[in-house]
Simulated scan of single mutants.
Amino acid sequence: MSTIGKPLVLSAPDPRSLDLIFTDAARRELHARYDVLECEPSALAEQSDETLAAVRYIIGQPPITPETLAAMKSLRCIFNVESNLINNMPYETLFERGIHVVTTGAVFAGPVAELGLAMALNLARGIVDADVDFREGRELWGGDGNSTARLLTGSEIGIVGFGDLGKALNRLLSGFDATIRVFDPWLPPSILREHNVEPASLETVLSQSDTVFVVAAVTSDNTGFLDRKAFARMRRNAAFVLLSRAGVVDFDALMQAVRSGHIVAASDVFPDEPLAADHPVRKLPGFLRSAHRAGALDIAFKRMGDMVLEDMDLMDRGLPPMRSKRAERETVSRMRSKPVTNN
């Protein structure tokens, strides 16, 4: 129960913790300004009516039933610090009541974009394979080691999806003097042109790119939409870099496209995580693997806490949240990403 004069924050950010997303100084500020009640996500509905009525903010994405929400008469905002919007609460009622649902996922855009660029450069220049060959004494020197090498500079690049991650990736690619085409059916062409990229169809992005970056969220409209036919449209020896969620891809079809030698690929995400020890992608030549670590940096996690505190301060003063990204009523129920199990 909240102390008089001190708003109540309910913290249920599983699998993340307050220690993970707040610096020591920010954690002290949080407790100085708010009463903080920590509970397991499943225990939210077990709180007393008096406690629920006093909650001003939720940190996390616990399941919320319509009955529990009705008891939360002071609720102003749900801070989703997992960053995957899951269909586990009555969003329509939240919007009708003017309760904000926000995500701190923008903190991952820069780190993920950097690793994605590194993956693309590796696929173009064979850096990891050349290092392994060197360690094992079978290195090829000079031009002999560059038989399949190519440049990103001056190449044709496609991006599928243009949210925070797509924009961050585009900024990093701006120095490569490349032609960059983007497919994102949720954005008008004018917004894409403002970012100096060419709006394009999915067909064009796939068929006219030397490198394709996939940064689209999983929705009810696009699950598995990058399938066997999509990979067949890609240029031979093109690179495919998957950075958002594996659910947008038919993963078996992706592996087959790599296995056949048609394309090379890299991925930071997989259909099931952690991945089974005997999963065939582990030993697939031409496939660069990363264990969903692109955004999992401490500096990114700590930025979440800063965003939460800044937005709480704004709302305490009767202003809307500005640092976190607000969920939209037209799209939130269409999100289909799996919840994370490892930070």
Rank of each mutant, 00 (worst) to 15 (best):
L173W: 02
A246F: 03
P63I: 02
K167E: 01
R289W: 01
D164I: 01
D298K: 12
A291D: 15
V81I: 06
P90F: 09
T331Y: 14
Q208N: 04
D298A: 08
E194C: 14
F213V: 01
E38H: 10
D177P: 09
A12V: 15
A230I: 05
A25N: 14
S190I: 15
E82Q: 13
V215Y: 07
V112W: 00
E50T: 11
Y34Q: 03
L152M: 10
A43I: 02
D316M: 12
T179A: 09
D313E: 15
V36D: 00
G261D: 02
G143E: 14
D316C: 10
P63G: 00
P13A: 10
M322Y: 15
E46I: 07
V214F: 06
A178Y: 06
P199L: 06
F79Q: 00
T341H: 12
G143Q: 12
G98V: 03
H292N: 09
L18N: 01
L187R: 03
R235S: 08
T68D: 11
S48W: 02
A53M: 01
L37N: 01
E198N: 04
N237W: 05
A277K: 15
E46T: 14
R326W: 05
Q256K: 05
F95W: 07
F240C: 03
V36A: 09
S48T: 10
L151N: 09
L44N: 04
E198D: 03
M307T: 04
A300D: 02
G142F: 06
A12I: 00
L169P: 04
S201Q: 04
D24T: 15
D268N: 14
R138S: 14
D133M: 15
G247H: 03
R28A: 15
P320V: 14
R56M: 03
P188K: 05
W141V: 13
V218S: 08
S324E: 12
L254F: 10
F225N: 04
M322H: 15
N84H: 13
T341M: 14
D14E: 10
R228Y: 07
F183W: 09
L75T: 05
A296F: 10
E29V: 11
K302Q: 14
E114H: 03
T104Q: 09
A327E: 00
D298F: 01
T23N: 04
N80D: 07
A124N: 08
I86H: 08
K229G: 13
T219C: 08
F22A: 00
L226Y: 05
R135W: 05
A54E: 13
A118D: 06
I99T: 11
Y34W: 03
A291Q: 11
A32D: 12
Y91C: 02
R97H: 06
R334G: 15
R282C: 11
D49T: 14
V197R: 01
G158Y: 09
Q61E: 10
P339A: 10
L8T: 01
E198F: 09
R289K: 10
R138D: 06
R329M: 13
L275G: 06
D221G: 06
F22C: 02
N87E: 06
Y91A: 02
A277Y: 04
S147Q: 13
L297S: 09
P90W: 08
N84E: 11
L309E: 03
R97N: 07
D272G: 14
R97M: 05
